[in-house]
Write a protein that binds this DNA or RNA. Structure first.
Lengths: 374, 374
DNA sequence: CTGTTAGCGCTTTCAT
DNA sequence: ATGAAAGCGCTAACAG
């Protein structure tokens, strides 16, 4: 990045510890107008002002109500959030924890969460883990300290017992403190969860592909530890078997859940002699990496090697050949999570199941007719 | 979305007004352990406990310090954020305001902001405007109420005077209340700004394309009101002229800053008889839409029509033909914004300029050699 | 329906 | 260096 700055060439030293580095605060600040100021200006009591301005179950006489609102407006009053939170014992913050907000899978879900939350006057904070499951628990703990009223943790569990236990513990503590928690992924710990039917979606996809005449399958399976990747692989296998085809073990290659992971996995598959068949990448991003690898190697795509993904990332809908995939309503999933949060916690954890929908496109030709599907 | 739920078929009614719908709170909640509890357990005063646990300029005798920390740990103490914020008069929240968090342009910047902020113990909240510039000001106002310590507003200004004034006003109020504000885009109102050199980048691109032998240019120009779109168009025009080529007015088509906007704009260009030349879409997302349109119409891409974009969205790096574009260090821009926030406010607004870098790829062939560039 | 008042949990002078 | 005490701004009993 080329850059020029008008001043201060030295960046503040980074000491990622102790007291949060509050951004440089201005020296002289205007004393904020408080509710007392408004009350005085309107000639009413603090309590009345509070009831009028910040909503309450109790009613205020219309003329007073208007008088207070007018005073508030003319003074430029804006309620002190922390003070309200303190008095109420809880903020109106929803904490969202994702692996990487730059990843379209997460950012699309985030958009859903934000949309649903903003509609209800809730503020969304975002924490990222960089795929480190331990950080999930840390974020939940921090959110408990912030008195967030709810938390949404998105992202595949690893199934690792200690990590899982730690998250379960923090989530329990969060709920014990009066907050609401929702997980998005798989049913792994006892808390309200939006369960993505990865296994079923992958199974449907496999069956559809067999229906198109594909018989020889390879899978770019993602990280071995990730439950989401594992479920998609398992579902695909099961679906293929059910339809009379098989996924040979040698044709299952693991790799990162990223574009580069898919690229590398595809290359290793090609190096191992795979030259014809249908490749299922457990997510779209990997599928695109695989396509790039095929192109680099001059493999006929989709003639010799067909490719399918999972997620139906919208930014990727214009790749060529168009990618066959399993559509997940990502934004809707984020919204679902918020709906779940808004409901009272039930005696036993609630679950919302979300299905994927197979979308056949040109990357997996219909072998029975010889024409691209769709 | 197919879904099954174990309970509560009816979603909570949506009344986007009055008191923020705090997510359903649990009935009985564990009383949180407070600093007083810790102090008592450690046998010290509240003040000492505060100094030991939550950091302070003042020193605490080592043994007491340890005693307090041990007590805090064993009790599972976690500081009450709102209470701290109230006492200190300020939270450690950085508010991020973007148009659409699902758009990779914004989500990548957001990733940079979050990364830099988390390193410093700052929490990032996210607000979205859905491209409504009025909502930007509203979010800034809300953040002032939340006593956020800083705000980052990302997104093109429209240059509309009243809207601009409103934002300027809110930003001023925010700063007057002691917060730090940074804008990302163009220098439009007097506040610290990360300025993206759209004009220069587009100019560089135009010159590079002329260098490849392109002479006939069309521009998919985005919404007429958006400064970013306008600057990119202006820069491209200027660059082309400087290199001896021209962009005819009839070949400048406006459209949404989205994939569909690019798609529609390209179609109208084709319908108007454009059949050969180089199309500059003012962002990558539009460029991809344009490519899809060309493909649908069976136009030889990049043989008859070459395409270039702007931004270098990473998810789009694998489209075919590979897209020529101007790379913006999006994540770095987000980090820059945070760096700026961390610095004390200067007497006159500070500015950081960020340049784009032309990346020539296969979508704009080198006409001088007949081979694809790069 | 309005007003008075007691905190919410923490930081921070101000003594000691 | 530690402790006691005064708020920060607002809400929610509790009276009137």
């Amino acid at each position: 990045m080329t850059e020029t700055r008008t001043a201060a060439p030295g960046d503040a030293a980074d000491d990622p510890s102790a007291p949060p580095a509050t951004p440089a605060s201005r020296t002289e600040r205007a004393a904020a107008v408080t509710l007392s100021d408004v009350a005085r200006a309107a000639g009413v009591s603090l309590a009345t002002a509070s009831r009028a301005v910040n909503g309450s179950a109790r009613k205020v006489r219309p003329d007073l109500h208007d008088r207070v609102l007018a005073a508030a407006a003319s003074l430029g009053y804006s309620a002190n959030g922390p003070a309200q939170a303190m008095a109420r014992g809880r903020t109106s913050v929803v904490g969202l924890v994702v692996h990487d907000i730059a990843d379209p899978y997460f950012s699309t879900m985030a958009a859903g969460v934000v949309r649903a939350a903003e509609e209800r006057g809730l503020v969304v904070t975002i924490g990222t883990t960089g795929r480190d499951p331990v950080k999930e628990a840390q974020h939940v703990a921090a959110l408990r300290g912030q008195r967030a009223s709810a938390v949404v943790v998105v992202g595949s569990r690893t199934g690792e017992a200690p990590v899982q236990a730690r998250l379960a513990e923090e989530v329990a503590a969060f709920e014990a403190a009066g907050g609401r928690a929702v997980l998005v992924s798989q049913e792994s710990i006892p808390v309200d969860t939006v369960v993505l039917q990865n296994e079923r979606g992958a199974g449907d996809l496999a069956r559809a592909l067999v229906g198109l005449g594909h018989r020889r399958f390879a899978v770019l399976a993602g990280p071995p530890g990730l439950l989401t990747a594992r479920d998609r692989l398992a579902g695909f296998r099961a679906g293929a078997s059910a339809a009379g085809a098989q996924v040979q073990d040698e044709l299952v290659v693991h790799g990162d859940f990223t574009r580069d992971g898919g690229h590398a996995a595809m290359l290793s598959l090609l190096d191992a002699g795979f030259a014809r068949g249908c490749v299922f990448a457990v997510n779209d991003v990997m599928a695109v990496g695989a396509m790039a690898a095929l192109r680099e190697r001059g493999v006929d795509l989709p003639g010799a090697v067909a490719v399918a993904g999972f997620d139906d990332i919208s930014t990727l809908r214009d790749v060529t050949p168009a990618l066959t995939t399993v559509r997940l309503p990502l934004q809707g999933i984020g919204e679902q999570a918020v709906h779940l949060l808004l409901q009272e916690r039930a005696a036993s954890p609630r679950t919302v199941h979300v299905d994927g929908e197979v979308v056949l496109r040109a990357s997996t030709p219909d072998l029975t007719t010889g024409r691209p599907s769709s």
